[in-house]
Every structure is written in C-alpha cells, then in structure tokens.
Nucleic acid binder design. Structure first.
Lengths: 204, 204
DNA sequence: TCCGATACTTAACGCCGTTAAGTATCGTGA
DNA sequence: TCACGATACTTAACGGCGTTAAGTATCGGA
C-alpha cells in the first residue's frame, strides 16, 4: 500500500511549493498585487491547479498567516517564561509584537489591518478562537493579569486593559506599516514613547 | 458671456452628483465593493463619464475623504477653543476622534487604514501636509504641547508623544472597525480604559 | 487489457479600472 | 442661415482579476 503514501507525499510537496511561492511573492509584491495567476506562473502550473489544494485565495494566504503568527506566539511564550518581572515582561512582549509586525508587514497587514473581506468563507479557519493571532493576544492578557495580581499595576479591568493595550500597539504597528512616509520621529523613540506612556499609565 | 458660466455650473452640478452617489454607495457597501460602474449606474451615466470629472477611482474617493475629514477638523477646532483645561480638552478630542472614525468607517478606512495603494498617483492631493487628516493631527499635537506647557503633563517629547497617542487611538478605532466580531468588552469601557491609561501615563 | 480514480489543463464567466475612438449637441463666427 | 469646432457623453475594447466547468492525460489495480 505504498502507493497511496507516495501520492500523499507528493501532494503535500506541491502544497508546500504553492505556499512557498505565495509567501515569496506577497512578501515582495504586497498582498493585493499578487494574483492567483502569478502564483501559478511561479510554480509553473496552471492557475486552477492551486484550487485543488486551497479553496480560495483567502484560504491560501490565511495558511501563511497562521504559520507566521505561530512564530510570534512561540516568541511571546518564551518571553513569558523567562521574565521574572511581569512588567518588564509585558513591555518586552509589546515591543516584540510591534517589531514582529514591522518585520512581517505583509502578514501583519492581511491578518490585522485589512478588512475581513479577505477572511470570508473560512469557517473554523479564521475564527478568532483558535487562531494564532488570538493566541498572541492571550499572552498579553496573561501578562496584564499577572501585573495586577502582583500589584505592580493599579486595579484595572484586565480584559479591557489588555484590549486597549493591544489596540495601542496595533495602532502604532499598523500606522508605521501603512503610512511609512508620515514624518515620524525616530522609530525607537516613538515605540518607547508609547510603551512608556502605556505602562506608566497602568502602574499602581 | 453667460454661457461659459452656465456650463461651468452644470459641470459642477454633475460633479457633485457623482460625489453624492459615490458617498452613498461606499458608505453602504464599503469601499472595495463599489466599482466605477456601480457609481455610474447610480447617476445613470456611462462609467467613462466619471473620468471626465475625476481622473481615477482613487481621486474620486479621496475627494470624499477630504470633505469628511474637514468636518472632523472643524469639530476638533471648536473643541480646542472652548476647553479651558487642556487635559480635558485632549481627552475629549481623542474621544471625538475615535467616535468620528466609528461613525465614518468607510472614510476612515480609506484614509488611514488601507494601504496607500489607494492613494497612488495623487500628487499634491494626498500629500500629508495640507491634507485634512494631517490638520486633525496638528490639533492633537497642539493639545499635548499645551498640557506640557502648563505642566499638567510630565516633560515628554511633544512630537513623539503626539504621534504615539495618535497611533494608540487609531489602533482602537481601526480594530473596532475592522474586527467588530472580536469579543470586545463594552465599547465605552474600552475607550475609557485606553484614554485613562494614556492620560495617566502622561500626567506629571 | 481495460476501468476508474487522480492530477492537471483549457476555456470560459462575469467582474474590475481604465482608455481609445466615435457621436450627438449646440453656441458662435462667417 | 449654415458650417465649424468645442464640449459632453457613449460604445467598445484592453488586459487584468478570482473562480468554475468541462475536458484530457496518466497510471495503479482488477
């Protein structure tokens, strides 16, 4: 019965080839400018072949995003583990989040910035629960909770604060990605300014 | 020489008709889902007629955005004038900004959320300097400066702080627009949480 | 040897933004 | 009065898009 397995393996290989091509292309060209036809051309198959492996452009690109955000999740998890001070851990985590977004602007754009037009028609696949983006948020939430528990922060509503904090760092990340030509102050100074304000504003 | 004037007037009328149709449509249907053909159908002209009045879809919609953000600018200006306490003025301004975005999601999306793909090919028209969005930012900047001058805020870098604050409120605004299905806490609570944190974090 | 599943392609549908080329209208100068 | 030329608008088309329907070639297994 080695035939089925070999076929399955080849199938998986082409699937990966498609993912690789798509990743390369839309990192280089930006999301909206990559068509299914271009991806197909890159792997030297006909455009319709892709639909035998992914049911839509949205699903194809969602797979890439999950993959990318899994990395962010891993990074945040590691950070959470070896940060004795939860406040410093939170600050570092927020910085990692922002820098991650800036280093993966295409994935970040698709996942968080764009309107979920692009997410339509993916049942379980882009539900917030279970998605890697959501997982990343849960680390933030845990960190804020820990700061409050240790009385480093004043007695804020943990969920509201986490959401507001996420929104704040998302705002900076997305503006830097989308409007790089705005006359920003130095990037590090800007990030520090936001993180300082947020954390000072939460301290006990 | 009344002929030229009458022609000019009629021309201006159709231009407004196009703008009105486009505004209505893309508020109702969302930006990306409105095609030039749909706008044309609504005004009962051929699609190409629009190009006699606007050189591209981007320009057409940019006109609408400028129009909308002029209103925000006016609101913020009024607010700045009759706010004796600059901290309260700033807080109110930030709230107005967020609520404005939530009330004009399509315009807000196009102007601040979407990648400037949509802004391409507009020379002066969407330069940051002079755009209404930029003007709105300048009110924020002035308010922060005033708070520092009156020693209500600690001695922060005004430009960096303004940019970071803008980023934060933009983040909340855009996330609420783009991901309305996320399990947010109550909207007002969320907004207050962010504004509290920001302003507490800046106070002297 | 032939069947049927599998893998892939060609052709097409109905959209899109935009442009080129054509036509009707109409005030104006001869 | 009539022909001209500007103006306003339309029809037809280009080249793209995501996606689907229908067709073909390949090949393991009965």
């Amino acid at each position: 019965m080695g035939v089925k397995e070999r076929r399955e393996k080849q199938r998986e290989e082409l699937r990966q080839e498609i993912l690789d091509a798509a990743r390369t292309l839309f990192i280089r060209e930006g999301y909206e400018n990559v068509s299914m036809r271009k991806v197909a051309e890159k792997i030297e198959y006909s455009p319709t072949t892709i639909y035998l492996y992914f049911k839509s452009k949205a699903e194809l690109l969602n797979c890439l995003c999950e993959e990318t955000f899994a990395k962010l999740g891993a990074r945040l998890e590691a950070l959470a583990k070896d940060s004795p001070d939860p406040v410093e851990g939170l600050r570092k985590g927020l910085r990692v989040y922002i820098e991650f977004g800036l280093k993966n602007p295409s994935h970040y754009t698709v996942t968080f910035i764009n309107h979920p037009l692009h997410h339509e028609g993916l049942g379980e696949e882009f539900a917030y629960e279970g998605s890697m983006g959501h997982k990343a948020f849960s680390y933030l939430s845990a960190a804020v909770g820990e700061c409050v528990r240790q009385k480093k922060f004043r007695r804020v509503d943990v969920e509201a604060t986490s959401q507001a904090t996420w929104a704040a760092v998302h705002g900076l990340t997305s503006l830097l990605i989308v409007h790089p030509d705005f006359p920003w102050v130095a990037r590090n100074k800007l990030i520090d300014s936001l993180l300082d304000t947020l954390i000072e504003g939460l301290k006990a």
